[in-house]
């Protein structure tokens, strides 16, 4: 996936993204980070085709994504939103079946043979007849992920997927994404709020500020204390433990030296 000179400005607002250019390499996990108002969500909506750019293009397989029909795009790119709206009660199985919509007519019967391996993989088989309202936040997020996987996509876009989860579920959900990337070779693009998640679960980080890319590269080169000071205005230190490196935020009165 290639993003070229991508620009979008919200009408009558001083927000959006300007001249974004980067590539998403197949089979990688890419984190998009930045403070509030930096353009992360705008970029996400442009990648998900929820917004049309003012200028520039997003290309998939050397074609602008606008050339794909809605169904064709849904077969290649699946989206998990930060806040997944549910207006009425529905069972886990029925919700996951929606992921087959890109492949069938609206009147077709669902093909559960395709769904079962996904439920097994995400350990949802025992919950499949349960109502979504009966599940914990972490379980619900796995169901939305299962629906996205039922689309059999090549790319998975996630908008702050762990924001509403407890700490325990945050860790297990991120590990699940890494497993999907590793075992199913899914290309994952995720907006992340948590800098340590970006450090540990991505091969590439794109850092945005004021709608522009201010740094892009491996987590080690982007998530440096000077960058974080410039963009997030926070003092940080990289602490090395037995489990690896972690970004620790220091009190504002303390310097990082």
């Amino acid at each position: 996936m290639q993003v070229k000179q991508l620009t979008y400005a919200y009408p009558n607002q001083n927000r959006g993204v300007t001249q974004l250019t980067f590539a998403i390499n197949p089979g990688t996990m890419t984190a998009i980070i930045g403070p509030n108002g930096s353009g992360k969500s705008t970029l996400f909506k442009l990648l998900a085709r929820e917004l049309q750019p003012d200028s520039g293009t997003i290309e998939l397989e050397q074609q602008p994504i606008t050339h794909f029909s809605a169904k064709e795009y849904a077969r290649k790119v699946a989206v998990v939103h930060q806040h997944n709206q549910l207006y009425d009660d529905i069972s886990v199985l029925d919700l996951v079946r929606f992921g087959q919509l890109p492949y069938h007519s609206l009147l077709a019967e669902p093909d559960d043979a395709q769904i079962k391996p996904i439920l097994d993989y995400l350990e949802l088989t025992a919950l499949q007849q349960q109502s979504m309202n009966q599940l914990s936040g972490g379980q619900q997020q796995r169901v939305w992920l299962a629906m996205a996987l039922a689309q059999q996509p090549e790319y998975l876009l996630l908008d702050e997927p762990t924001t509403y989860l407890d700490l325990h579920f945050q860790a297990s959900f991120m590990e699940l994404l890494a497993k999907l990337n590793r075992e199913l070779h899914l290309t994952i693009v995720m907006i992340l709020h948590d800098l340590n998640q970006a450090l540990h679960f991505s091969q590439r980080v794109i850092m945005l500020a004021d709608g522009r890319i201010v740094a892009g590269g491996t987590p080690e080169t982007v998530l440096t204390p000077p960058h974080l000071q410039d963009v997030f205005r926070i003092n940080t230190e990289l602490v090395t433990t037995k489990q690896g490196q972690f970004i620790v935020q220091l009190p504002t009165t303390t310097t990082a030296d």
Binding site: A48, A74, V77, H81, L86, Y87, F98, Q151
Partner: peptide, 13 residues
């Protein structure tokens, strides 16, 4: 229509 319009659109509906 039990799920949000934005999600439905990403399913190609």
């Amino acid at each position: 229509l039990k799920i949000g319009d934005a999600q439905l659109k990403t399913l190609g509906l």
